[in-house]
């Protein structure tokens, strides 16, 4: 198996926590988040500080819910969308846990889960903390325009999710297990439009999804639920069409976090995006459903558009990636 790894002793989820922003707190999944902040500043004087505060708080919350002390955690794997992944770095500085900084854009959460699971399954760690964040205003000013500048966005554009999520993984006993993961390859399908990241990321999601089933030999209706990261409304339609052309029909079992996190009338165009998008839906909604036994077999496919403003302005296509992690509960 080139991209997939199956774990003989599957790592388990010991605890998880989510903090969502104001707009996400008005969305359909609001009830699944541990905390909703009511202002993008979160009682700080800059948005960057607000994001760092969410990050640190959600990490501490996850440790508390897992009844694990900071000193017991072997490694902290974290990332976010800002240049030099500063939100993760500042949280790491405050936590004082041996730290790996990660970047896979909106797929960073799934990248962290894969590496965390591998560290534990390989015997290099007993407990690992994985954390990510994204913030509408910090991302908007870094990648696009000042937040108060008037612009008319295209229907394919997506709204960056404000929020942070953290998961404590460990060996031993736990309700939610990670039996297998599939590491994605960075691809480029000559997609140039930074306001259509969903469309750009579909080939990566498609590739990782098919590789996962091919390498594991699982039947297509094995999982109860499969969620892609943030392809949003039109990206999801393209993915379904590609799958149909290959005679695969997942029906209702395949959905997308970018569609689920907002209501259509929330003025988000195609849907949500950002590292926190798949992280909030997975660590909020999915883990809750798994631990309550409403679903038993879940596959998450975190998707990321690995672009920067510089590469876009220099006329380069958008490289994309997708990582898959299976979660099962019995």
């Amino acid at each position: 198996m080139r991209q997939t790894r199956e774990f003989a002793n599957p790592p388990v989820v010991l605890g998880y926590a989510t903090i969502a922003g104001p707009k996400e707190g008005e969305g359909p999944l609001a009830a699944y988040f541990d905390k909703v902040i009511n202002n993008l500043y979160y009682y700080e004087d800059t948005w960057e500080k607000a994001e760092q505060k969410m990050f640190l708080e959600v990490a501490e919350m996850a440790l508390q819910k897992a009844s694990v002390k900071k000193e017991e955690v072997d490694f902290f794997l974290a990332g976010d969308l800002l240049n030099q992944i500063i939100s993760a770095n500042f949280a790491a500085k405050s936590l004082g846990i041996p730290f790996f900084g990660l970047y896979n854009a909106c797929a960073t959460f799934y990248e962290g889960l894969i590496l965390g699971a591998m560290l534990i399954a390989g015997g290099f760690a007993k407990k690992v903390l994985v954390g990510v964040s994204s913030h509408y205003a910090t991302v908007e000013r870094q990648y696009r325009n000042p937040t108060e500048q008037g612009v008319q966005k295209t229907p394919t554009s997506q709204w960056t999710v404000t929020g942070a999520a953290a998961v404590v993984l460990g060996d031993g006993e736990g309700k939610i297990k990670i039996p297998r993961v599939t590491v994605g390859k960075a691809l480029d399908y000559d997609m140039f439009d930074p306001s259509d990241m969903g469309g750009a990321m579909v080939p990566a999601a498609f590739d990782t999804l098919l590789v996962h089933f091919k390498e594991t030999g699982l039947v297509y209706d094995y999982y109860d639920l499969m969620l892609t990261g943030d392809l949003a409304r039109f990206g999801q339609q393209i993915l379904v069409k590609l799958l149909q052309e290959n005679n695969i029909n997942f029906g209702q079992r395949l959905n997308d976090c970018g569609i689920m996190i907002y209501r259509p009338e929330q003025q988000v165009n195609a849907g949500g995006s950002g590292t926190a998008c798949s992280a909030l839906v997975t660590a909020g909604y999915v883990f809750n459903e798994l631990s309550q036994g409403k679903i038993h077999k879940f596959l998450g496919i975190g998707t990321g558009a690995l672009l920067s403003q510089v590469t876009t302005q220099q006329g380069m296509a958008i490289p994309v990636i997708a990582h898959a992690v299976a979660f099962e509960s019995y």
């Binding site: 229907p155 469309g199 039109f234 339609q237 393209i238 069409k241």
Partner: peptide
Amino acid sequence: TVEKIKPR
């Protein structure tokens, strides 16, 4: 495929 589905 993208051009067909992408909304104007």
